[in-house]
Write a protein that binds this DNA or RNA. Structure first.
Lengths: 230, 230
DNA sequence: CTGCCACCGTACGTTTCCGTACTGAGAAAA
DNA sequence: TTTTCTCAGTACGGAAACGTACGGTGGCAG
């Protein structure tokens, strides 16, 4: 019985850990790898340890926008839990690192045996749905700087150091805005001392200030997580 | 055994219908009634027949925006299914009419007895999450006219006639934009013959044209519904 | 060490939508 | 009828973000 870096795995009862662990494979996931493609069967469900994955919805052909972020607090492939093996969204690796994975079929088998595991994962499903809803809120009502602040905070929550390895270009795709807008906003953040920006990397310097800027656009799903999973 | 107007109830097996029906109460719901308040316990779960309910996320104090729409195709209170009795969102009646409701606790008891019912509701949960994700997409990338078209189509799907009883003011709150912007956009729709607008009422006149305008911002959750529930 | 390429900084005219506010019109109440 | 209230139409200046584009820079590959 090992102490898991993934917070869902760490929250499991010993019995559930015994059910899951024989099936978990450690994997290294490189940047930009797609772990779920739109409308394709989900083969594996991933429990991130140090990776951060983006759940991305398509709009039209090559037009994408992020709807959610999953790191060490969660799990990918929730659709498996909801009784289906595919979803219209895609999921891919935003920040590389390690994860544990399990075959989707194996997980479904285990879910039939353990109510407590299913309930834990459903509670995370609720948290994640809340996150998506708050993304809708932020996209509809927040200014770019607030959305950017929200993203940085969510990424920061899911990293060990204060560093997030990401380019402006990628961030722009995630937020559905111009690359140049991201550059300008990050510059302003840096001048205010919120972050230190280096090529392909953002270091959080003043988290409190970023939280203040994000205001109520950050924190709702995080509070739900704390309440329901701990 | 009656033929239900709610599509989820209509899709139930006879056994599940027998479990549920004794607990279902018909209710009339008036406009603007709140059936779920943020962070309050959900008392009843509603299966709309002719009502349309909005799921609304808060941003700050009195700043709201719609993240999803539930009508005769669905059910409110999905959070009950996810193992919790409250959620940060609120749900209220957008278009008045009839619904069937069941006490949340009674539903939870029944869910323990019927896997098939739980699976059906979870599949709807997946569809609804998809709808929220597409709301995030639309809020992030679509122009106001496209978002408005999307809303009209979704409301139209959930009404019997071609009429939707809604004011510009309400629509503006739902979409998180100015009331005046809605007026201007609806005017343009009317001049193009897409709709007929009367005081507090929109009548769909040329659905195809509205679909064309909404483009890929409409249809993703609807396709999931068809695929998973039918 | 040099060339290349991904990444970042900046600029400018344009579009979309906002904030605010005033006016008129339909419906319901007095 | 007259009043009152909600709802809809219109206007104007301004902010935010867009599309596009060009030049600079850090860092890796040859």
């Amino acid at each position: 019985m090992k102490k898991h870096r993934n917070r869902l795995l760490a929250a499991l009862s010993p019995a559930d850990q015994n059910l899951l662990e024989p099936q978990l494979q450690p994997v290294q996931l490189e940047k930009r790898r797609t772990i779920e493609a739109p409308n394709k069967t989900v083969d594996y469900v991933y429990f991130p340890e140090t990776v951060i994955a983006s759940v991305v919805a398509l709009c039209g052909r090559e037009d994408r926008i992020e709807v959610g972020l999953i790191g060490c607090e969660g799990v990918s492939g929730l659709t498996v839990l909801m009784g289906d093996l595919r979803s219209p969204n895609s999921t891919y690796i935003q920040v590389e690192g390690e994860a544990l994975r399990i075959e989707a079929d194996a997980l479904r088998t285990i879910l039939l045996k353990s109510n407590s595991l299913r309930e834990l994962l459903l509670r995370f499903g609720h948290v994640f749905t809340t996150q998506i809803a708050q993304t809708a809120v932020a996209n509809g009502r927040a200014k770019l700087e607030q959305r950017l602040a929200r993203w940085i905070l969510m990424a920061h929550d899911r990293t060990v150091a204060d560093d997030v390895a990401i380019t402006h270009e990628f961030l722009a795709v995630m937020l559905g805005v111009r690359r140049a807008s991201v550059t300008v906003a990050l510059d302003r953040f840096e001048k205010k001392g919120f972050i230190i920006a280096r090529r392909g990397r953002i270091t959080v310097a003043d988290r409190k200030a970023i939280e203040k800027l994000a205001g109520h656009f950050y924190g709702v799903p995080e509070a739900e997580f704390k309440r329901l999973i701990g």
